[in-house]
């Protein structure tokens, strides 16, 4: 059940809610995309989240760019909403959870407490990313480079895969555009073929990169994207993606 259709009733700007019509199958594993950009894996009762980039706002403030300092709070509110909705037993972050290694020193006390609460209530794993090679030690949970979820490996950056190996990754912040009635609609998306899936970035200040850009070259065969609309997730084959 979607936790809310009206973004105004909760304080986060993006709605959440597991898709009722889409399942992404990867090596026999069922993955359910969520409107927030997270993935739920029912077999493991695990919620996967990529690229939160906490404290991205304050990292720019050091250069005199004063973006609203609410991005961490916003991302955590969003995270809490998904957790309340899905009630997972495990929480796995796929890297770049923090925008840089000094983010821990800048995070607001209230946000830090919220983060600790979230990780204390269930098994939490922080996979390291290129932005957070050494995530903070004092926020609960474990730190890992990779995690195996049954037949699938979870890691931050996609790797070239030998035959018969599967992965779920983040890092790329995928977005896709399609055309409808002469309009081009672009949204964040999940992207997957039969061997690999990449999650969109979860953070509230994270931008997105077209799945047609060079960064995606060679990673996917015949893929699909699951585009995140404002109330539903929409699936398209590669041929429809602009």
């Amino acid at each position: 059940m979607p936790c809310s259709l009206k973004p105004r009733t909760i304080s986060s700007t993006r709605p959440c809610g597991l898709s009722r019509s889409h399942r992404i199958r990867l090596s026999g594993l069922d993955l359910i995309p969520d409107l927030s950009g997270a993935i739920y894996v029912p077999d493991f009762q695990a919620l996967l989240i990529a690229d939160m980039h906490l404290e991205k706002g304050s990292s720019l403030a050091r250069r005199g760019i004063h973006l609203p300092p609410y991005d961490t709070r916003e991302t955590l509110t969003q995270l809490s909403s998904v957790i309340a909705d899905v009630k997972p037993n495990r929480l796995i972050f796929l890297g770049d959870s923090f925008h840089d290694d000094a983010a821990r020193d800048r995070i607001d006390a209230a946000d830090l407490a919220a983060l600790r609460r979230i990780s204390a209530e269930r098994d939490t794993i922080w996979i390291t990313g290129n932005h957070d090679a050494s995530p903070p030690q004092d926020i609960g949970g474990q730190i890992a480079r990779e995690v195996a979820l049954g037949p699938v490996t979870l890691r931050h950056e996609p790797k070239s895969l030998p035959q018969g190996v599967f992965e779920i990754a983040g890092h790329l912040h995928p977005a896709a555009a399609v055309e409808s009635r002469g309009h081009r609609i672009r949204c964040r998306c999940f992207i997957a073929d039969d061997r690999r899936m990449v999650l969109p970035a979860f953070g509230s200040y994270t931008g997105a990169l077209s799945v047609r850009s060079d960064a995606f070259d060679g990673l996917f065969g015949d893929y699909h994207v699951w585009m995140i609309g404002s109330r539903a997730i929409h699936r398209f084959p590669a041929a429809k993606v602009r």
Binding site: T13, L67, P68, Y70
Partner: peptide, 19 residues
């Protein structure tokens, strides 16, 4: 630009609507 202004708008509107 460093951060998409649409994202900034959404965040600011939900956290400090009188900014």
């Amino acid at each position: 630009m460093t951060v998409n202004t649409d994202l900034i708008y959404d965040v600011l509107r939900s956290h400090q609507p009188d900014h």
